[in-house]
Simulated assay, not measured.
Amino acid sequence: MNKMRVILLADSETERLDLVDMLKNIDYIQLIGDFIAEEEAWQMMERSPADILLVGAGSNGERYAFTQKISTHYPQAGIIMIEGELQEETMHNALFAGAKDVLIKPIAPEKLMNAIYRIHQLKERIGTAKQEAPQKKIRKSELGQVYTVFSTKGGVGKTFVSINLAAALAKDAQKRVVLVDLDLDFGNAALALNLYPKFTISDVIDDIRHVDSDLIESYLIPHESGIKVLPANSQPSLNEFINAEHIRIILEALRESFDYVIVDMPARFFETIMPALALADHLLVITTPEISSVRNIKSMLVTLKDLNFPQSKIRIVLNKADSRGDIKKNDVEATLNKKVDASIGFDYRRVLSSLNRGVPLVHEYPKNILSKNIDKMKIQFEQNEPLKA
Rank of each mutant, 00 (worst) to 15 (best):
Q235N: 14
N330R: 08
I107M: 07
D203I: 02
N243L: 00
D18K: 09
K158M: 06
P386F: 04
N373M: 11
K388N: 09
L54M: 11
D264E: 12
I327S: 12
I119H: 13
Y74R: 03
S354M: 02
L8T: 06
E245Q: 14
M377N: 01
I36C: 06
L238S: 06
K153E: 02
A108D: 05
T303F: 01
K140A: 12
S218H: 06
H92C: 03
N114S: 11
G155W: 03
I32R: 04
I327P: 09
I242A: 08
Y365H: 11
P75A: 01
M377C: 13
M44S: 14
L361V: 04
D34N: 14
V177H: 08
I250L: 00
N356L: 05
V55Q: 06
G78S: 08
I314Q: 04
Q68P: 08
R315G: 02
L9Y: 00
F258Q: 12
L284I: 07
V149T: 07
R63S: 12
Y147E: 03
K320L: 05
S299M: 13
Q76Y: 11
I107C: 04
K123R: 13
A189L: 03
E62L: 08
A253I: 00
I314D: 01
E333I: 03
L254W: 07
V102W: 05
Y348R: 13
A167H: 09
K376H: 15
